[in-house]
Design a binder for these strands. Structure first.
Lengths: 225, 225
DNA sequence: GCGGTTCTTCAGCGTCGTTTCAGCCGCCGT
DNA sequence: ACGGCGGCTGAAACGACGCTGAAGAACCGC
């Protein structure tokens, strides 16, 4: 899941990036409204964290512009702590939620998850495919009753596959969402990690949840294999 | 304010009724666990005074059953005077407070009022994960029957982890909540304190309640490890 | 003011996760 | 049947991260 953070204040931006990455999100940061708009269009993220006060193009305008383009990416706005107006205006311009500064990291993450869940309705907090299930908040995954021991990357990858279970996802798509979009390394890394996952979630159970679609990508079987 | 007293011993039950009614409470009395459970469900009281030793369905089971039903009515448990286990187990099953027999009438009333003032919070006043439990108000923590000797910081950290048990919490989040949010020192201090805690709550018992999620943070196992 | 306890900083070390790479296998089209 | 391409795998290097013990600083009770 990739988050776009549009925030000009360096310290806050760095903090947000670090915090969100620690939660397993891939994070893009734009330090002004113009870059933010460009990234939102060209590299559609799964959600946007948007500061109102921005040099050049402010948050309201950015938000309104995207909505005018029929871009419904969930947007969470960061507003000043006092102005009640800010919040009303935020929602009015098409933001999905807002947070007043200063805010706690936990709240931000919770709201973001809620937003993304709402974005594609009826998404439970626990993802499942057959007897394979995953709790994103707890960073835990199980095959039936046995808990799986996965690293952060493996967990993110499995989460992504689970969110798109039944669909074929390309390596390119995986790279964009599970790794940073600016990742310019060898795409082979996806194969390596798919291998890791299979060794942990399929082989020990004699199952095949993860299928290779040669030339297209991978598909996680909706019934867990 | 209506109190449900679940107590099989006739004399004590009668005494409790009389005393509480004199204080202006309305009182229901159940003389066994099954009736108690039924009354707790059908005529939800503002608080429950619950003896552990009951014919049929004992206090622990009754308490756990209600909590499993998301019933957070404040519960004050009456435990035997000696068994250290009783108290820990009482809190562990979801009771909000306990009183060891024999107890003074004044103390009972005071505790009851305190419980009700606090309302029926979703968060029990005592936090537990498996046999690990902590009483924030009393600044005490136990692993099973043995009390833990923790410093203030250690206690705060354990409390925070317990409140978010089962979830992964980042170092950043811990710093914000356990230290001051404007703490700008070395985040390494969290690692140091996690180390201290493990040495006190896990190692001596051969357990692992506190897990490191590399790159993400820490998680306190919901079952106490 | 003094001793002990608690809190914080720091640097070194070991472990674990990520990434790269090279070689192999098997599918597929010619 | 053959060659090429895409995917799989194990090994290894590298870097990052977390753990620890020690030492200094701050705090507290006496």
């Amino acid at each position: 899941m990739r988050i776009l953070v549009v925030e000009d204040e360096q310290r806050l931006a760095a903090g947000l990036r670090a915090g969100l990455e620690a939660e397993g999100f891939a994070v893009d940061v734009a330090s002004n409204g113009v870059d933010g708009l460009w990234l939102a269009r060209e590299r559609p993220p799964d959600a946007i964290v948007l500061d109102i006060m921005l040099p050049g193009l402010n948050g309201y305008v950015l938000c309104r512009t995207l909505r005018a383009e029929e871009n419904w990416t969930p947007i969470l706005m960061l507003t000043a702590k006092d102005g009640e107006w800010d919040q009303v205006e935020a929602l009015d311009t098409g933001a999905d939620d807002y947070l007043t500064k200063p805010f706690s990291h936990a709240v931000l993450v919770a709201r973001l998850r809620a937003l993304m869940r709402r974005g594609a309705p009826e998404r439970p907090t626990v993802l499942a495919a057959g007897d394979l299930c995953l709790d994103p908040a707890g960073r835990q995954a199980w095959r039936g009753p046995t808990q799986l021991d996965l690293t952060t990357r493996e967990m993110s990858l499995l989460e992504f596959l689970l969110r798109r279970r039944g669909e074929v996802v390309s390596k390119h798509e995986i790279l964009e969402h599970v790794w940073d979009f600016d990742f310019d390394g060898d795409p082979n890394i996806v194969e390596v990690y798919i291998g890791h996952l299979r060794r942990k979630v399929d082989r020990p159970f004699g199952r095949t949840a993860i299928r290779t679609i040669r030339g297209a990508g991978y598909r996680l079987e909706a019934d867990g294999g």
